[in-house]
Design a protein around this nucleic acid. Structure first.
Lengths: 115, 115
DNA sequence: CGGCTTATCAACCATGTGGTTGCATATCGG
DNA sequence: CCGATATGCAACCACATGGTTGATAAGCCG
């Protein structure tokens, strides 16, 4: 199967808390406590979210005193975007063509019945 | 929380089988049996994948005789792409700037210690 | 050293996923 | 109506997720 590591990336993106964390991280690195502040969850839950993001390669963590600042790693986002962009033609142009195709096939069935 | 339904979409994308199904569907509608043919899984497993895709709004199913042809619905892909594209600047341009920022902060700490 | 903050690890629980098998249903085609 | 095909539903299993609480390690600061 063609898995260039996109599954963990999309999986990490499939959670609003993690998407919000990435949004915050886009403005610059931040330690765990600050990342979790907006959410009504424990620090441990935040830590688990970060682990998911890290396994997907979306963030990297360094040590700085007792803080572990997280940094956004955008490369996986670029690959994910590239995958979706394959379908840009579908939603921009070919979608109407596809629908017409279906109508054509269904129309042919109608012809066969009432003729 | 800002959840405009992107979580199910990314969740559906987080599986290589489902991504392959979408790839096949991009070429046109197809019934369940044909969608499952390339994979070494049961028809029921395919059906469950399709249910996940359907709940995410990525496909729609119609009835045509005993077949239930699936059709790709690209709108959620467009929204997902839009979300990721927010970060294009990060991986295209600002990434280096971000790294420099970190180096600057760390450098300032070094200054404080050895000065 | 002792205490505070930061952050992670471990165990637990409920739920979803990804697969299976078995059964039910619907439709075509004799 | 009967049988074959296409598809869905339900139950089950193993495992991951997303949350909790409790304990623990690592750093700062007094």
């Amino acid at each position: 199967m063609d898995d260039d590591g996109l599954s963990p990336v999309f999986g990490a993106l499939a959670d609003p808390t993690r998407r919000a964390i990435l949004a915050r991280l886009a403005e610059g690195p931040a330690p765990v406590t600050e990342l979790g502040r907006p959410f009504d969850i424990s620090a441990q839950a935040v830590s688990k979210h970060l682990k998911v993001l890290e396994r997907a390669g979306l963030i990297s963590r360094t040590r700085q005193g007792q803080w572990r600042p997280c940094r956004l790693e955008a490369a996986p986002l670029e690959r994910a975007s590239g995958w979706i962009e394959q379908y840009r033609a579908v939603w921009e142009d070919s979608l109407g063509r596809l629908e017409q195709e279906i109508d054509r096939i269904q129309g042919r069935q109608d012809d066969a019945t009432h003729d």
